[in-house]
C-alpha cells in the first residue's frame, strides 16, 4: 500500500449509492482505483478473473439480486487467493442478525450507509486508510459495527 494506488471495489445494485460512492472517492485526495459491479453474480465473476489487479478492499452491499452479499461473503472466504482482501459490509440496515452473520462469516467491518454525504466521506476515508493487514489481528465484535 506504500506504493501505487489502493484498489477498491464496490458491489451494490443501487445506482444512486454507486454514484455517492464514486463522488466520495473523486473528492478524496487519496490515490485509489475504484471499480464497481452491479450485483453478486457480477462480483463473483469479476473476482475470478485474473487479468487485472485484485482489489485491496471490497465494499459489499447485502441486499442484492441474484446473489446476496452474505452468499458472496461466504464464497469469497472459501477462496484462497482472496484471503488477503479486506471486506467491509456496506448496507442500508443494520439488524442484529445481519451484523452477527457477517461477523461470523469473516467480514472486517460493518458500515451502515449514512444519510449525509459529509458523514459518508469521513467514514470511507477512515476505512480506506486503516492498515487492514495489521488490524485483522485485533478484530472483535465490539468495534465491528463502525460508528462515527
Amino acid at each position: 500500500m506504500k506504493n501505487g494506488p489502493i484498489y477498491v471495489l464496490l458491489a451494490d445494485d443501487d445506482e444512486d449509492d454507486r454514484l455517492f460512492f464514486k463522488d466520495v472517492f473523486d473528492e478524496l485526495k487519496i490515490n485509489t482505483v475504484v471499480n464497481m459491479v452491479n450485483d453478486g453474480e457480477e462480483l463473483m465473476k469479476y473476482l475470478s478473473r485474473n487479468d487485472h489487479t485484485l482489489p485491496h478492499m471490497l465494499f459489499l452491499d447485502l441486499n442484492m439480486p441474484f446473489k446476496t452479499g452474505l452468499e458472496c461473503l461466504t464464497e469469497i472466504k472459501k477462496m484462497d487467493h482472496l484471503k488477503e482482501m479486506a471486506i467491509a459490509i456496506y448496507s442500508t440496515s443494520a439488524s442484529e442478525k445481519e451484523i452477527e452473520e457477517t461477523f461470523v462469516n469473516g467480514a472486517n467491518i460493518y458500515i451502515k450507509k449514512p444519510s449525509d454525504f459529509g458523514t459518508l466521506k469521513k467514514i470511507l476515508a477512515d476505512v480506506i486508510t486503516i492498515n487492514w493487514q495489521y488490524q485483522t489481528s485485533g478484530l472483535n465484535r465490539d468495534n465491528f459495527l463502525l460508528s462515527i
Binding site: 444512486d16 442500508t92 440496515s93 450507509k113 449514512p114 444519510s115 459529509g118
Partner: peptide
C-alpha cells in the same frame, strides 16, 4: 426497515 428507509436516506444524502 429496508425499502422505506432507502429512498429517505437517499433524499437526505442528495440534500446534503
Amino acid at each position: 426497515s429496508h425499502d422505506l428507509q432507502e429512498p429517505l436516506r437517499k433524499i437526505q444524502t442528495f440534500i446534503s
